[in-house]
């Protein structure tokens, strides 16, 4: 017997969401979606959620199970059930619930739209298709697998605190066009994606990689855009300056120079940015916690410099 603790919400009847328990005597090789259907069809027809293909293709049935977003049709309950034979189901995070497990995807789609998810070639369409080699397709193979389920968006730590962040799904979608050999707006795209709310607001926490039910792995795609942005010379922002300063510091001493990197990241002439660094800098200084002023190199730093040279850096 498995107990499903499901977060119910119907604003027409009750303002606040509440948990309701349903018990099912089911085989544990059923998928979570099979069980949700069983509850809906036999215990409570008002239970609301999205579903369609039941084959991890349509991306409709993402929900939170035991606190993490998953595709309900892709996971057997045996992998979800906790020691006390329960599974807690909640709507996806970072989006407003509409009813029970169904959430409003509007902000999700608005952000997908924002990254212009379509090819922008300069030339007119040829008579036949625009050919891509397998090598060219490799760059966009993984991001093409995204099924827009919203699992990454739901569990993104940055979106939890900042609605302005484009989020992992839209940025993975952006990579699909930034690195598409047929697209000719690469520079414009990475300029746009380097603005606040874009690639440089990602913390690298890889929560999105963990929740992605496909090989899209959004964070890996975000990293790829960062590299393209730097290659394209889009460096007038804190994220790019931080990356360049970091790489430069390791080149010169084999180590990170913590005194220099914050200053170079905000920019030497960004007086407000520099002023903002003062309180924490002084606080650390007075505690004797500031990084040593004389920055020491690692042993064999020449070998590190040689590696940089060999890789044309």
């Amino acid at each position: 017997m498995i107990t499903f603790k499901i977060k119910r919400y119907n604003p027409e009847k009750q303002a606040e969401p509440y948990f309701e328990e349903f018990q099912l005597d089911v085989q544990d090789d059923l998928t979570l979606l099979d069980c949700m259907n069983e509850i809906k069809w036999t215990l409570d027809g008002s239970l609301t959620y999205r579903m369609s293909c039941r084959s991890a293709i349509c991306g409709s049935c993402a929900v939170k199970a035991n606190g993490h977003a998953i595709l309900a049709c892709q996971r057997q309950v045996r992998h979800l059930v906790k020691d006390d034979d329960t599974i807690v189901l909640e709507p996806l995070g970072n989006m407003k619930p509409i009813k029970d497990l169904a959430v409003d995807f509007k902000p999700f789609w608005e952000k997908i739209d924002k990254v212009k998810p379509y090819l922008q070639p300069k030339q007119k369409a040829p008579e036949k298709e625009r050919i891509q080699s397998p090598e060219q397709f490799k760059f966009i193979d993984d991001s093409s697998t995204c099924i827009m389920c919203g699992a990454c968006y739901s569990d993104c730590d940055v979106l939890e605190v900042d609605d302005n962040f484009l989020g992992p799904a839209a940025l993975a979608k952006a990579q699909r066009f930034v690195q598409d050999s047929r697209d000719e707006k690469t520079l414009e795209r990475v300029k746009e994606l380097s603005k606040p709310g874009g690639i440089w607001d990602c913390t690298h926490c890889a929560e999105c990689v963990e929740r992605c039910p496909k090989p899209a792995r959004p964070f890996d795609r975000i990293k790829e855009i960062m590299t393209v942005a730097l290659e394209q010379g889009v460096t007038n922002n804190n994220g790019a300056r931080h990356a360049l300063s970091f790489a430069k510091s390791v080149k010169s001493s084999g180590r990170l120079n913590e005194n220099i990197i914050p200053v170079e990241s905000v920019g030497f002439f960004n007086f407000k940015g520099l002023f903002d660094l003062l309180p924490v800098g002084l606080r650390m200084f007075f505690k004797g916690k500031n990084p040593p002023i004389l920055h020491k190199s690692i042993d064999e730093v020449e070998d590190v410099k040689r590696i940089y040279r060999e890789l044309n850096e």
Partner: peptide, 13 residues
């Protein structure tokens, strides 16, 4: 003689 791991930032470059 080990270098900084790069913190996932050097790999951005």
């Amino acid at each position: 003689s080990a270098a900084c791991c790069g913190a996932g930032v050097v790999s951005e470059k």
